[in-house]
Design a binder for these strands. Structure first.
Length: 654
RNA sequence: GCUGCCUUAGCUCAGUGGUAGAGCACUUCCUUGGUAAGGAAGAGGUCUUGGGUUCAAGUCCCAAAGGCAGCACCA
C-alpha cells in the first residue's frame, strides 16, 4: 500500500503498487500525456511504466527545456535512437556506451568504417523515421546468466554487463526500441522516456574519437555527439548559444582585432602584436600593483636551469616529458616549466628567521611546457606562457590566515574584471589515495583551506581525491558572460618541495632551531595568455576602458581637420590615454563603422564646428551619442572611468 | 599523442580531372565629406609540403606538417 507524496505535499494512497503512468493519469490525463518519467525522493529517476512499490515522494517529470531531469531522460533516450539509426545505416556497428552529458549526449561506437559529417543527414533521416514510428522504449529485466548470454560475442556490452554485476546490480536490464527480441535493443540500466515520439528535437552535433574506458591504450572508438530538447524552440536556442560562443572565440577575435598570431612553424607560442601586448602589459601592471599592496616581493629567476636542480626538485623524474631540454658544454639543462624551485633557491639565500615569515615571493614567470600537440588551443593552452605566480613560505600555523588573505585578494581581483562572488566557484581538492603525510596533517590542512574560503565570504564544493600527493588545493573557476566556466586561480599546500628530502627550505624558529617551512603555490589569473583569452571571450572584445588597447579614436570629417585632430590626440596621449587618429580619406560613415567594428571604446568626431570651438563630438562603441564636449572634460571623464575600472554594462556584476 | 575532418590571395570563402575565382582588405586616381561601407582602376597565387596515379591533378591516392572537434594529458 504505497503512500505517495506529491511535490505540493498532497498524499495519495493506493491499494496496490501502481506505475508512474497510472499515478499521473490519476492526477490528470493531461499530465499523463506530457509525462516522461518519475523522480523518487528527489534522487532516483524511473521509467513511467515501472511500479512505485514503496512509500515515497514523487515528482512527475514532464516535457520541458528547463528541467534537468526531463533533458536527462530525453537525451538518454535520444542516444538509443541514434545508436539504432547508426546500426541500421552501418550494419556491423558495435555499441559501447551512450550516456547523456551536459549539453546533450554521445554514443561511443565501433563502426565498420569511419563516420564523417557527410553521414549525418542519412543517420538523422533514419532517426526521424524511428521517432515518427513512436515506438515504446521497452524495459526487460533478465538474470545475470541470461543477460550475459544476450551480450555474448559483444566485447563492449559483455564488459558493461560484467561491470553492472560487479557493482551489485540484482539483474541486467535491456531496453528495446519497440518489442524486446524483435526490435533493436541495448543493454542499459535506463531510465527512458515512454516512447520515441517524444524525441522531436534531436540532432547530431559532431563526431570525434574516444577511447574505450577513456584509456589511451585501449580501443579507439567513434563518438557521435548529439543533443535533444523538448521541442524545436529549445534546440534552436541551444544552437544560438553555440553561435554566440563562436562569435566570441578568442582565436577569431584575436585575428580580427589584431591582438596576436601563432606561426605555423612554431605551434603553441604566441606572437603578441602591439594591441595584444598593450592588454598584456596593462594586465601585468595591474597584478604587479595588487601584489605589492598585498605584501608580495617580486623577483625574477632564470628561464634555463641545470638538470641537477630539476633532479633535486623531483621534476626531472616526474615531469621530464613535459620539459624542453637543452645542453651546453655537455651539461643538461631544462627550460623552466614552473617557478617554484627558483623561488626556493631565492628563499634559501641567507638564514631566514621566523620573524620574516610568511614570505611571499612573486614572479611573472615565463614558463615553457611541452604540451601534446592535441592539447594546444589558441592562447588558452600553449607551450610558452607567463603566470602570475607566487609562493608563500610559511609555518604550518600561518596556513589558514594566508589562504584566507589570498582568497580575499583573489575576489578583489576577479571583481575588477566583472567576475563578482556569484561568478566564482571554488572547489577543494582533498587527499588522494596515494599520498604523503599522516591523516591528521591532511585533516588539518583540508580544514584550514576550507575555513579560509568561508572566511573570505565564498562557498566551496569538494573534489574528493583530487589533491596532489603532497597536499590539498583550492581551485577557483570563473563563470563568464555566457555561462561557461574557466578554472583560473589556485592555491596549493606543499610541504614536500621545501622539505628535507627535496629542496630543504628552512627557517630559524623562536626556539633557535631550524625548521622546514611549508609553501603555498598560488596564482590568481593563472597564465596571462589564457586569462586574456578568457577576457576576450567574456567581453567579446569590448574591453573595459582601463584594459582597452585603443581607448579612443579621433575621426576627422575631412583632411582640413587633421591638424586639429592631431592636437586633440596629443592632449589625450599626454594625459595617458591610448588615443589614435583615423587619417584615411574615407567618409565619416565608413570611419565610424571601422571604429565600432574594431571595438574602440569611444570615438571623437572632429569637423569644422568642433575645430572652431575646441571640442569633440563623442560617441561610444555602442553608438550612443555623448554630446559635444571640451577636451579637458573628455580627459577627466576617461580618467575617472579608468581609475574606477568601470565595466561595460553588459559585463558588470551585482 | 590518438581518431575523424580541414588546409585555395592579407582575411572570409567558392571552385564539376582540362586557362585560378568572389567579397572584404591593400595600392593608385577621382571625390573633402557630419554619424555603420562614395566611385574607378590596379596589384596580389609554389592551390600547405613531398611523393604517386593520369595525356592532363587545386580536384583522385599515399605520407608529412599545421589547424579544428573530441579523447587522452594538465606531477
Amino acid at each position: 500500500m504505497p503512500r505517495i507524496t506529491l511535490p505540493d505535499g498532497a498524499v495519495r494512497e493506493f491499494p496496490q503498487p501502481i506505475t508512474g503512468l497510472e499515478l499521473a493519469t490519476a492526477i490528470s490525463p493531461g499530465l499523463a500525456k506530457r509525462a516522461l518519467g518519475v523522480k523518487l525522493d528527489g534522487a532516483e529517476i524511473r521509467d513511467l511504466s515501472r511500479p512505485l512499490d514503496r512509500d515515497c515522494q514523487v515528482k512527475i517529470i514532464t516535457v520541458s527545456n528547463d528541467d534537468k531531469d526531463a533533458l536527462f531522460l530525453l537525451r538518454h533516450s535520444a542516444a538509443h535512437v541514434l545508436a539504432e539509426a547508426v546500426c541500421a545505416v552501418l550494419p556491423g556497428t558495435r555499441l559501447a556506451y551512450g550516456p547523456p552529458v551536459d549539453d546533450g549526449f554521445y554514443y561511443d561506437l565501433k563502426t565498420p568504417r569511419p563516420i564523417s559529417e557527410a553521414d549525418f543527414p542519412v543517420i538523422e533521416a533514419k532517426m526521424q523515421e524511428i521517432v515518427a514510428a513512436n515506438k515504446p522504449f521497452t524495459r526487460c529485466e533478465v538474470s545475470h546468466a541470461d543477460g550475459l548470454k544476450r551480450t555474448e560475442g559483444d566485447l563492449y556490452k559483455t564488459d558493461n554487463a560484467q561491470r553492472a554485476i560487479a557493482k551489485g546490480s540484482p539483474n541486467l536490464s535491456f531496453y528495446a526500441n519497440g518489442t524486446p527480441g524483435a526490435d533493436w535493443e541495448d543493454l542499459c540500466m535506463g531510465p527512458h522516456v515512454p516512447s520515441t515520439g517524444f524525441l522531436k528535437a534531436a540532432k547530431i552535433m559532431s563526431v570525434a574519437g574516444a577511447y574505450w574506458h577513456g584509456d589511451q591504450n585501449s580501443d579507439q572508438l567513434t563518438r557521435i555527439y548529439g543533443t535533444c530538447f523538448a521541442d524545436e524552440k529549445g534546440l534552436k536556442a541551444h544552437l544560438t548559444r553555440i553561435e554566440e560562443a563562436k562569435k566570441r572565440d578568442h582565436r577569431k577575435l584575436g585575428k580580427e582585432l589584431d591582438l596576436f598570431h601563432i606561426e605555423e612553424d612554431n605551434p603553441g607560442q604566441i606572437f603578441w602584436h602591439p594591441k595584444g601586448w598593450s592588454l598584456y602589459v596593462t594586465l601585468m601592471d595591474y597584478m604587479r600593483a595588487r601584489q605589492r599592496q598585498n605584501g608580495y616581493h617580486e623577483v625574477h629567476t632564470p628561464s634555463v636551469m641545470s638538470k641537477s636542480l630539476w633532479e633535486k626538485s623531483g621534476h626531472w623524474d616526474k615531469y621530464r616529458d613535459n620539459m624542453f631540454t637543452t645542453e651546453s658544454e655537455k651539461r643538461d639543462f631544462a627550460i623552466k616549466p614552473m617557478n617554484c624551485p627558483g623561488h626556493i633557491l631565492i628563499f634559501k639565500q641567507g638564514l631566514k628567521s621566523y620573524r620574516e615569515l610568511p614570505l611571499r615571493i612573486a614572479e611573472f614567470g615565463s614558463c615553457c611546457r611541452n604540451e601534446a600537440s592535441g592539447a594546444l588551443h589558441g592562447i588558452m593552452r600553449v607551450r610558452g606562457f607567463v603566470q602570475d605566480d607566487a609562493h608563500i613560505f610559511c609555518a604550518e600555523s600561518h596556513i589558514e590566515a594566508e589562504v584566507a588573505a589570498f582568497c580575499r585578494m583573489l575576489t578583489e581581483v576577479y571583481q575588477d574584471f566583472g567576475f563578482g562572488i556569484e561568478r566564482i566557484e571554488v572547489k577543494l581538492s582533498t587527499r588522494p589515495e596515494k599520498r604523503l603525510g599522516s591523516d591528521e596533517s591532511w585533516d588539518k590542512a583540508e580544514q584550514a583551506l576550507g575555513n579560509a574560503v568561508l572566511a573570505a565570504g565564498l562557498k566551496y564544493g569538494l573534489n574528493p581525491g583530487e589533491g596532489a600527493f603532497y597536499g590539498p588545493k583550492l581551485e577557483f573557476t570563473l563563470v563568464d558572460a555566457i555561462g561557461r566556466g574557466w578554472q583560473c586561480g589556485t592555491i596549493q599546500l606543499d610541504p614536500n618541495l621545501p622539505g628535507k628530502e627535496r629542496l630543504d627550505a628552512t627557517f630559524v624558529g623562536e626556539d633557535g632551531a631550524k625548521h622546514n617551512c611549508v609553501m603555498l603555490h598560488r596564482a590568481i589569473l593563472g597564465s596571462l595568455e589564457r586569462f586574456i583569452g578568457i577576457l576576450i571571450e567574456h567581453f567579446e572584445g569590448k574591453f573595459p576602458l582601463w584594459l582597452a588597447p585603443e581607448q579612443v579614436r579621433i575621426l576627422p570629417i575631412s583632411d582640413e581637420q587633421l591638424p586639429y585632430a592631431r592636437e586633440v590626440c596629443d592632449q589625450l596621449k599626454s594625459a595617458g590615454i591610448r588615443a589614435t587618429i583615423d587619417e584615411k580619406p574615407d567618409k565619416l560613415g565608413a570611419k565610424i563603422r571601422e571604429a565600432r567594428n574594431a571595438r574602440v571604446n569611444y570615438f571623437a568626431v572632429v569637423g569644422a564646428q568642433e575645430a572652431g570651438a575646441g571640442t569633440v563630438a563623442l560617441q561610444d562603441q555602442k553608438g550612443e551619442k555623448l554630446g559635444t564636449l571640451e577636451i579637458d572634460d573628455v580627459i577627466a571623464q576617461f580618467l575617472e572611468e579608468i581609475a574606477e575600472r568601470r565595466l561595460p554594462t553588459a559585463a558588470a556584476t551585482t
